[in-house]
Simulated scan of single mutants.
Amino acid sequence: MLSEPTYLAARMVAPALAVHFAQHWAAAARLSAVPLAPPPPAALIEAVIDVAFWASLRREEGRPPRISLALLAPEDAVQPLRFAHQLRLTPQALIKLAPAVEQPGIHLGIGEDDKGLYVWGTATHIPPVCFVLEVVEPGLLVAKHRRADGFGKFVNVAVLRGDQVRVVDEENLGLADCPVLRESLPAITLSSSATAGSGPTVEVLLELARAMRAHGRGGLVLLVPTGSDAWQESIVQPLSYPVAPAYDEVATLLAEPDHTQRDWQDTL
């Protein structure tokens, strides 16, 4: 039995998230042969968000928890690490487990039985469209899931910061919906299309920008011509971290035949 949640934002956003995951699960089930974890109902989503939120406000040895929760059964994960005994999903349990799962890509597996929610272990490989809740910092949670098409790692669905809830607008996620942004990009060939029917076009500049945004500390990409150092006259000298010889990994990646797999994008 699920306890009564007390985090109001969880109750506000849970129905919309349940609809999102149900719709995406149905679409992924039609297009993919990969086994999928069942879409969670609103009550389950609300309960997980509630516990994670209150856990985010606590500290263990002076440090707030940074954890990722995946709502799925052990059978739905690939080579999961299972605890000998299930742990009830409580804020106290999460802050105790947090130091062991802070590394990116490690998720605490969350299940449900007649007693409520519990932590069954950890997983590093989860199926597409599996509900994932990341505790980023105190009071800041992000609901997301792996992309069903394999293009990119995760797609954010909702961001909760205290009593503020922001559901990501799926209708305006693509570059095609941002003509001003696209026109602002340099008119150079830094994109590559995979073979016909194998997947979406990879926009290298956007993938680089996405990777830079991931750490949340800002950054700048400067595109310069080859065979000339004249551009250095516009840069404050000396450069703090010059790279020599020129880094050509992007060109190497573009020469590969398949640019739709996640490993290719991870290399960027």
Score class of each variant (00 low, 15 high):
2 L>I: 07
14 A>C: 11
16 A>F: 12
17 L>H: 09
18 A>L: 05
21 F>H: 13
22 A>L: 05
26 A>I: 01
28 A>K: 03
33 A>C: 10
39 P>L: 07
42 A>V: 03
44 L>S: 09
44 L>Q: 09
47 A>L: 12
48 V>F: 02
51 V>T: 13
51 V>L: 13
57 L>K: 11
58 R>H: 11
60 E>I: 00
60 E>Q: 02
61 E>F: 07
63 R>G: 04
63 R>L: 11
64 P>K: 09
65 P>S: 05
68 S>P: 00
69 L>M: 13
69 L>Y: 10
73 A>G: 11
74 P>I: 14
74 P>E: 07
75 E>H: 07
75 E>G: 04
76 D>S: 10
76 D>M: 11
80 P>I: 01
84 A>N: 14
90 T>V: 01
90 T>R: 06
91 P>H: 04
92 Q>Y: 02
94 L>N: 04
94 L>E: 09
97 L>Q: 12
100 A>V: 08
101 V>D: 03
101 V>P: 03
102 E>W: 03
104 P>H: 05
109 G>A: 06
111 G>F: 02
112 E>M: 12
112 E>A: 11
117 L>T: 09
118 Y>M: 04
122 T>H: 05
123 A>D: 05
124 T>D: 08
124 T>A: 06
125 H>F: 09
125 H>C: 10
133 L>W: 06
134 E>G: 12
134 E>C: 09
135 V>N: 04
137 E>F: 03
138 P>Q: 14
139 G>K: 06
139 G>Q: 03
140 L>S: 05
147 R>I: 02
149 D>W: 00
150 G>K: 02
150 G>A: 04
151 F>H: 02
151 F>T: 00
152 G>R: 03
155 V>W: 00
161 R>A: 11
162 G>S: 10
164 Q>V: 13
166 R>V: 15
166 R>H: 15
169 D>W: 02
172 N>F: 13
174 G>I: 01
175 L>D: 12
175 L>N: 03
178 C>M: 09
180 V>A: 15
181 L>K: 04
186 P>C: 01
186 P>S: 03
188 I>P: 05
188 I>T: 09
189 T>Q: 14
194 A>Y: 04
195 T>A: 15
195 T>C: 09
197 G>C: 12
199 G>F: 00
203 E>N: 08
204 V>P: 02
205 L>K: 06
209 A>M: 08
210 R>D: 02
212 M>A: 14
219 G>F: 08
219 G>K: 10
222 L>R: 11
224 V>P: 05
224 V>T: 11
224 V>M: 04
225 P>I: 02
233 E>W: 13
237 Q>A: 10
238 P>Y: 05
239 L>P: 09
241 Y>P: 00
241 Y>M: 11
244 A>F: 14
248 D>G: 12
249 E>T: 14
255 A>H: 15
255 A>I: 00
257 P>Y: 04
257 P>N: 04
257 P>D: 12
258 D>N: 07
258 D>P: 00
260 T>Q: 02
261 Q>C: 06
266 D>A: 00
266 D>N: 05
267 T>M: 01
267 T>R: 08
267 T>H: 00
